[in-house]
Each structure stands twice: as C-alpha cells, then as structure tokens.
C-alpha cells in the first residue's frame, strides 16, 4: 500500500524583481516586476508504507517545497497528491494526527522551556492521555538518549542534542509517516550519526515510513533503501540506493596527513592528486577503476599516517554525472 502518491505536482511562486540602488527601488515601487519561479515542475512518485525514501537534491531544488505541500502547509499550483489517503492541503488537520515532521532549520520545541514541557504539550495536542504520554516520553528518551536532556531549557542544548529532542518530539504520537526536512543540517559527524541511528531504529521498530530530504549523500547511504534525486523541481534520478552507489557514488575523496613531510612528486597510479601540501595530500579516485585497498596500502606505505578523512563527492557533482549519463543514453 502506498503512503504517498504524487502525480504531476507543480508549484510556482511569484518573486518581486528589483534592480540595484535607489533608482531600482523607486521603479519597483511604481512599476513592480515579478519573476515566476517554478519550484516544483511536474513531480510524480510513490512511496510505500514503512519505506525509507531519500529525497535529495542541491539547495533550491524544490525538496522543502514538496515536503511542505505533502504536509498540507502549501497549496500546489496544480497536480494531485495523497498522503496516507488524505489530500494534504484539503485535510491538513486530519493528516496531522498521522504524520510527524521535522524541519531541520526551524525549532518546534519551546525555546525557553525544557523539552519535557513541549513533549507534554504535544501529548495534549495529539489527544494522548497523560499516562500514555509519559510512557511514550520514557520510551523515546531511551531510543534517542535524551533522558538527561529533557529538563534542560532548550536554549541551553547543543544543536545535536536539540535535533535529537526535535525528532523524538515528532514521534510522540506514533505517526505512520515521518517527514524529515534536512534533519542533519549543521550537525557534526558524531551528532549526524546519532540522529541517523535513532531514526533507523525507530523506523525498524515501529514501521514508520520515513521521507527524508537532505543535500548530504551520507544521510542517504546511512538510512535509505530508495532514492529520488530532484533538481530544478524535477526528478532526475529514481532508483535503489545500492544502484546509485554502484553507478554514481564511485568516486571517493581522501585527505591524509602524515607525521613527516610529503615529497612534492607524490603520486599513485590511477589516482588524481588534487593537492600536495607539506604534510598532507588530497586525492580523488574512482573505486570501480582503482581498488580501495590498493590506494589505502599505498598511502600507508608512503609514511606514518596521522589523520585520514574519506568523503563522498558533493551532490552537485553526482547530479552533473547523472545528467551526463542520461545525455549519453539519449
């Protein structure tokens, strides 16, 4: 059974255009001109119940607009969508009982009060009885490791701690579907891992479907089975994450630091050296052409390693690669 069905969804905004300076301001005052921004352009996709679906794309791709349409906050310009059988913008309040949302850049917890107060308030808002709310808070505080944070005013929490509380709060009413809009934005590596682990556990234990938007390919690899990549409001790729990894996330970026100086002529066969510093090297290679273990062996033989960082290519690069692949196919 589908939890989300989207058909030919479109959303356009009008934004005011103004030239620089006083002249531009006066002109905009008397003769305003508008740009039409097509945030979402004919989006169609489905999401199965309990699925972990990644919805990724660069900034301004239309991810957040789509999520806001799916939660009923924004009305689409045209097209259809059903979330858990509800038309979101027509039945927003009914739908709200069955979904949880987290907008990574916005707080839903009351800033000056301890998170426990917001949890108790949400219990009332979602019409849970006090006993059930307390049981649920106890369960979530274990799952998200927030027991010791609940009585601290939210403003005193670190971003990572706050985000764990935010996601836990959105699960208080046992939603069937969790819509996460950039939940890991601004978090450090450890905090990201914490959030990802907790989301994965909750999804497995409570069969909550998760639609996750992110511009971090790491979120996708850690959490999702299927991915939809959008750019300029359109789907540019839709497949299993394993296929995406095999086809497009094959290039790895590695940064190493050595205890002793690196010779400027440093090189490894089949590896693109991006930068050689006094004590460090930055390189990039394609895992389908050059085996990872061969590169690692070469790096460790070159000197005493002090630090190493392996990262995926930025999403923009992956999208560019998808476009190239598509145009070759066409």
């Amino acid at each position: 059974m589908s939890s989300i069905e989207v058909t030919n969804l479109q959303k356009t905004f009008q934004t005011k255009r103004k030239a620089a300076g006083m002249r531009g301001s006066l002109r905009a005052l008397f003769k305003p001109e508008y740009n039409t921004v097509e945030a979402v352009r004919g989006l169609s996709f489905q999401m199965e119940a309990g699925e972990l679906l990644g919805f990724i794309g660069p900034n301004g791709a239309g991810k957040s607009t789509t999520i806001k349409i799916l939660t009923g906050i924004l009305h689409p310009t045209s097209g259809d969508a059903k979330v858990l059988g509800f038309v979101p913008w027509k039945e927003r309040q009914k739908l709200a009982y069955h979904i949880g949302t987290v907008f990574g850049q916005r707080p839903q917890l009351w800033y000056h009060l301890p998170a426990i107060d917001t949890f108790m308030l949400f219990g009332k808002i979602y019409e849970l009885d006090d006993c059930e709310t307390k049981k649920r808070i106890s369960f979530l505080s274990e799952a998200f490791e927030i027991r010791d944070l609940l009585e601290t005013p939210v403003r005193k929490l670190s971003l990572g701690q706050r985000m764990r509380c935010e996601v836990a709060a959105s699960l208080l009413h046992r939603p069937k579907l969790l819509l996460l809009d950039e939940p890991s934005i601004g978090l450090d590596v450890v905090a990201k891992q914490h959030i990802r682990d907790a989301i994965r556990t909750m999804s497995q234990e409570e069969k909550v479907g998760v639609l996750l938007t992110s511009h971090d390919a790491g979120d996708l690899e850690a959490l999702c089975r299927r991915v939809i990549i959008i750019n300029h409001g359109q789907i540019v790729y839709e497949d299993k994450v394993s296929n995406l990894k095999r086809k497009f996330l094959t290039r790895k970026m590695v940064e190493v630091r050595y205890a002793e100086e690196v010779p400027p002529t440093f090189s490894i066969d089949g590896v693109e050296i991006l930068k050689v510093g006094s004590y460090g090297v930055k390189l990039r290679f394609d895992t389908t052409k050059t085996p990872v273990d061969a590169v690692m062996a070469h790096l460790s033989q070159a000197g005493e390693l002090v630090d190493i960082t392996v990262s995926d290519p930025p999403l923009e690069e992956v999208i560019a690669k998808i476009y190239t692949a598509n145009s070759v196919v066409e």
């Binding site: 939660t71 009923g72 906050i73 927003r92 009914k94 979904i99 907008f103 850049q105 916005r106």
Partner: peptide
C-alpha cells in the same frame, strides 16, 4: 518570515 509557521500549521489544531 522565519518559517516557523510550518510547525504551527501542521499540528492538529486550528
């Protein structure tokens, strides 16, 4: 302006 309205609108209350 700060987008917080998204949270106010998607809760089950008027």
């Amino acid at each position: 302006k700060n987008g917080e309205v998204a949270y106010i609108l998607n809760k089950p209350y008027n």
